[in-house]
């Protein structure tokens, strides 16, 4: 009894102090950071670690429910590389990433430069371009699937009308074109995002630098090479890194346009990983492929973070 009498007020005081610090002290900051940390660890961190772990384990129907499974070492990685489709998928992934990013960046940059020219309505029209970015990938995929359709697609009609092709090209089912069909759709999808980021970068370059360069004797091309590009260095680094991540994440277009076919000629790593895990139920290989991609994204992220650290302005 006496003990309780003594500790009661002390505990109450502690509680009050804790609540007070939550209201207006450092406790509130910890609470906010803590909520974010819990969310990150639970929703991103643990699944990521579990995924990496799984890529080093033997996973089958009998061990699916357990966390600790027979250790496989690098066997899953060896198996994935030995898959007959591996090099085809690697090549497709490279084509998809390189040309999607290249197309998005070059056309996005051109559009950003175009809309930086301050003609009437420039910012309004630029805003409209964002529509493509807002649209769900599956919807974009469905639309491009129709545009690219071999027998009734509008692209074939246009190309034939212009006399560029004589007979229909079966974009989605011809092994020579299937990956390009998805690349075209993906360029369209990511264009607005690239253009927007690059527009922001362009707008941040002071106008008087161009004027000074102009008086120093630089023509438009020289101004682009000696002022615009170097001043955009960090923006370009960010756009390319985010572009790489975004392209490696791009999934919706594949089921909507080619489903990876024909004969895996348009399968890329992320789609392959999904097929392994959720169509063939080979979770170990699916996890392994995604870890391989994770390493690539990680490298891109490091480049991105470093490029934003090297701000030259000021």
């Amino acid at each position: 009894m006496g003990v309780i009498m003594e500790t009661g007020p002390a505990v109450g005081g502690l509680m009050r102090r804790f609540l007070a610090s939550l209201r207006d002290g450092v406790g509130f900051d910890i609470l906010l950071v803590g909520a974010a940390m819990v969310f990150l660890i639970a929703m991103a961190g643990l699944p990521l670690i579990y995924n990496v772990l799984m890529s080093f384990q033997q996973v089958d129907m009998f061990t699916l429910g357990s966390l600790i499974r027979p250790w496989a070492g690098f066997q899953n990685y060896i198996d994935v590389v030995r898959e007959p489709a591996f090099w085809l998928v690697a090549k497709n992934t490279f084509i998809f990433v390189f040309f999607s990013m290249g197309g998005q960046f070059v056309i996005g940059f051109a559009l950003a430069l175009f809309f930086a020219q301050n003609f009437p309505g420039a910012s309004t029209i630029r805003g409209l371009f964002l529509v493509s970015w807002v649209m769900p990938g599956l919807v974009v995929g469905a639309i491009w699937s129709w545009i690219l359709a071999g027998d009734f697609g509008v692209l074939n009609t246009i190309l034939k009308g212009l006399g560029i092709i004589q007979s229909n090209v079966f974009w989605k089912s011809d092994p020579a074109f299937s990956i390009w069909a998805v690349v075209i759709a993906n360029i369209w999808l990511g264009l607005a995002f690239n253009m927007l980021l690059l527009s922001v970068g362009l707008a941040a370059i002071p106008r008087d630098l161009y004027e000074a360069a102009e008086l120093d004797g630089a023509n438009a091309l020289q101004r682009f090479w000696t002022i615009t590009l170097p001043m955009m260095r960090s923006t370009i680094g960010a756009v390319l890194s985010l572009g790489l991540i975004g392209t490696l994440q791009q999934f919706d277009l594949f089921p909507a346009i080619t489903e990876g076919g024909p004969a895996n000629t348009s399968t890329v790593a992320q789609y392959w990983s999904w097929q392994m895990s959720f169509q063939l139920y080979d979770f170990a290989k699916g996890a392994t492929i995604s870890v391989m991609m994770l390493v690539l994204v990680l490298i891109a992220s490091i480049i991105y973070v470093r490029s934003t650290r090297h701000e030259v302005r000021g």
Partner: peptide
Amino acid sequence: PPRHRDIAMVFQSYALYPHMTVEENLTYS
């Protein structure tokens, strides 16, 4: 156009090229 007028200007903001050293700024033209 300005680049053919052979005129130099000193701007209020100086408009120095931030990504170039002093020497590169001087020798740009």
